Simulated scan of single mutants.
Amino acid sequence: MTSPTSPASPSGDGDDGSAEEPRHVVCARCGASAQAPGGAAPPTWIFSVEHGARRYFCAVCSRENLRSIEGRLDSDWW
């Protein structure tokens, strides 16, 4: 018989009730920074995975480089 290594929450989602600490993210292009609540980047920021590393870009840099970003996507995505 196997036993679980950690107790499950009553809802079954694995949430132990603790809130995640805000994470500090920095724009890979201009260096702007923001606090990211809940472990994700602010909703207006985008991210890219390049060479296995996640890079974040602020809303200003994203807008300024939108054409270049879309140019890298397959046409099915836009």
Rank of each mutant, 00 (worst) to 15 (best):
M1K: 05
M1G: 14
T2H: 04
T2I: 08
T2D: 04
T2C: 00
S3C: 00
S3Y: 04
P4F: 08
T5D: 07
S6D: 03
S6M: 05
S6N: 05
P7E: 09
P7K: 15
P7D: 07
A8H: 13
P10F: 04
S11F: 06
G12W: 06
G12L: 10
D13W: 01
D13S: 12
G14H: 08
G14C: 05
D16W: 03
S18P: 00
A19I: 06
E20L: 12
E20H: 10
E21Q: 15
E21H: 11
H24P: 01
V25G: 01
V26P: 03
C27W: 06
A28D: 14
A28T: 10
R29I: 09
C30Q: 07
G31D: 07
G31F: 10
A34Q: 08
Q35T: 08
Q35N: 15
Q35W: 14
A36K: 06
A36I: 06
A36M: 09
P37E: 09
P37H: 10
G39H: 12
A40V: 06
A41Q: 13
A41P: 00
P42V: 05
P43W: 04
W45L: 02
W45Y: 02
I46R: 15
F47E: 11
S48V: 08
S48G: 09
E50K: 08
E50I: 11
H51I: 00
A53D: 10
R55G: 00
Y56Q: 04
Y56N: 07
F57I: 10
C58L: 04
A59M: 01
A59L: 00
A59E: 11
A59T: 02
C61K: 03
S62K: 14
S62Y: 12
S62F: 11
R63W: 02
E64Q: 15
E64C: 05
N65P: 02
L66C: 07
L66S: 11
L66T: 13
R67H: 06
I69M: 09
G71P: 06
L73V: 01
L73S: 03
D74W: 01
S75P: 05
D76E: 14
D76T: 12
W77S: 03
W78R: 15
W78F: 12
